[in-house]
Design a protein around this nucleic acid. Sequence first.
DNA 1: CTCATGAGTTGACGGTGTTCTCTATCGAAG
DNA 2: CTTCGATAGAGAACACCGTCAACTCATGAG
Lengths: 263, 263
Amino acid sequence: MSTPRPVTDSGDHPPSRRERFRQATIDEIKRTARAQMADEGPAGLSLRAVARAMNITPSALYRYFQGIDDLITALCVDAYNALADAVNSSVATVDERDPADHAARWWAFARGMREWAIANPADFALIYGTPLPGYEAPLEDTRPAGLRFTGTALRILSDAVDAGAIDLDTALIQHRPTISDDLSAALDAAGIFSDRRGIAILLGAWTILQGHLTLELFGHFEWLHIDAGTLFDEHVRAMMLTMGFDHAAAVPPRRTPSATPPT
Amino acid sequence: MSTPRPVTDSGDHPPSRRERFRQATIDEIKRTARAQMADEGPAGLSLRAVARAMNITPSALYRYFQGIDDLITALCVDAYNALADAVNSSVATVDERDPADHAARWWAFARGMREWAIANPADFALIYGTPLPGYEAPLEDTRPAGLRFTGTALRILSDAVDAGAIDLDTALIQHRPTISDDLSAALDAAGIFSDRRGIAILLGAWTILQGHLTLELFGHFEWLHIDAGTLFDEHVRAMMLTMGFDHAAAVPPRRTPSATPPT
DNA sequence: CTCATGAGTTGACGGTGTTCTCTATCGAAG
DNA sequence: CTTCGATAGAGAACACCGTCAACTCATGAG
């Protein structure tokens, strides 16, 4: 489906000299594009500017990407993976201390997401902000990477429910959403969330994270001169109470003092 | 500050023939620009395309707007005002039935916002989505319109607290955010929310609305094949419980059956 | 009637994504 | 070591974009 891209590799046994150079160029293009995106947002990305920064002709980029849409897709996949890596490593530091502290795992997940978003605002905007004008993400390339993040959240919540750290009956969210048969079958196969209320809880949590991060990163808290970090913690705390977490009252201390992220 | 724009009006007593024509042209430009924005999002707006649609030269537009940024600012202000009008009229229909039903007022506010956002996704993205690449909104023009919306929410919540429909002590959000002295003074002058917990409650509600609407409008619920309308109601319901509303258990019937908005 | 002011056009500049044609180099096969 | 196909890149062109300067022409006020 997406293979008409000009590629060198026929077999994949040893990365030949040419293929290594090719991969290095692809990496440099993506790196340059990300740097440019960081300056003026995802919509400010420009093939010609990337080429200029690399001392290369714009048309030369077409040896590596079919066009700017293809480059954007690659950046989207990288961003999804980077976000998933960030939250996974954040949760992992809890796991190696006490894998049974499910509330701490969720805190690590939420804070890990925020820290990644603040460190990489352009990537966050790319995947969770306004869709780019003429661009439609090819889901067959993008979805797997995107589901890694969702999967981590799903696993944390599912584990918490199984361990009794979340009591679905005391959760304020009691909705059982109707979901597609595909997803339903996938969940049953994975043996998680046979109680559909978990889906609603996950969606509610996602909504709050998305809401806070878009408001914060897109500058809507600035005129309030409010401490966004503390506010985020309060949102997570309230969210955990509505989710049915048992011990959510205590906000764990923050690793980094509440510094305003550089805008 | 923003008056070097070429304007005709010296006095404002009778709108002269010229000024009427001028205003009509301005309206047509904004209408054309909004139609174009609706097609391919805020970042897809193009002065030349607007001029083309109006059978006019691009440079002619500079008689009416200093540049594309100035046009964007005008569209932002219009969007803020349209949103405020939408939620105000939505709340007004409740008020003329029973102004003391504070839960119903909040429901009307929330649903009014969603209905407006679904009907005008480009305008929503313009003011609450990813900031446009080179554009920085001039706050002195934009803020007053933006505050109309905030003010409506503030008033509904304040009234609800005063009437006892919201019990701040039972709210899950107990945070008292530190806010700027300006805002603090303004609140005191208006005699609302001397209890700062109300601010946190307002911010929490705003976060959920923003989160749900960006997720829904930017297409992140599509692969779930979920009923976004029902999900929204559940989010509002849970939100009202965390806010300390007393009778939030019942979701009021929807006026429009949950039809998927045209994408 | 005069004439400044407004609306509008024309043409240019530098920027953008994209495509086509051409050249030089690399790497492997003979 | 030579040959030759594949690859990387250059260059020019096209249509689009925002913006500006100079110019024309009609309007409306004195």
